[in-house]
Amino acid sequence: MINWIRGLGRWGLGTFERLGRGHLFLMQMMAGVPSLFLRFSLVMQQLFSVGVLSVLIILVSGLFVGMVLGLQGYNTLVDFGAEESLGVLVSLSLVRELGPVVSALLFAGRAGSALTAEVGLMKSTEQLSGMEMMAVDPIRRIIAPRFLAGIISMPLLAAIFSAVGIVGAFLVGHGLLGVDDGAFWSQMQAKTDFYDDIMNGVIKSVVFGFVVTWIALFEGHDAMPTSEGVGRATTRTVVHSAFAILGLDFVLTALMFGDE
């Protein structure tokens, strides 16, 4: 019993210590961001590996999620004779929820895990340490550009996801199920608000990008410098990112849409 309580205590202390280190790490990262605008080519490189390489999975998933939404939404709406509202249903669910959340989950799986593995490997092969001894701060040179690239990429990816999803839903709704295309778009436009829906979705995705990249880089930087340690850190990145995304999504939704 005592051992059990002691274990709990140790777990708690460990968690708090990690949280503390994570926040210190965040401060160091943020401190490294301003100087990046002088050397934007570093960020450019990372925009490629973090953003561009995630586009394909985002495109494919977005298209299919949109198509499924179109199909499912139609089947439900047609019972009420409201299939004209398909556009609204699809655009609101994508722009408010699925776009930011699903693309953030995919981003955590595709880019987040890659970031953790990359940074963890650099740590375990002493590259970060070596850089420090060359008087180059690895946080500024390696971590901060990836962090900034993650924050920039995420909203762009989420926007691509939503746009492709809506097109997918339109293809299914109009092409396959025969929903009137004018009604599809006009109902959508009437009910989707730029500030309340689209901008809030963008804010969500920026927050998710921030959190996922932070978690991924911290896990990589904090990983045990062995191949097993890096592997475990990669898993942790995906799991913790998913928790963080879904938890934050609730909080953000409550904050932004709660008072309607």
């Binding site: 762009l156 990816l157 926007a159 746009a163």
Partner: peptide, 9 residues
């Protein structure tokens, strides 16, 4: 990539 993202937005 950035152009595509902005276009989507």
């Amino acid at each position: 990539f950035v152009a595509a993202g902005l276009a989507a937005l």
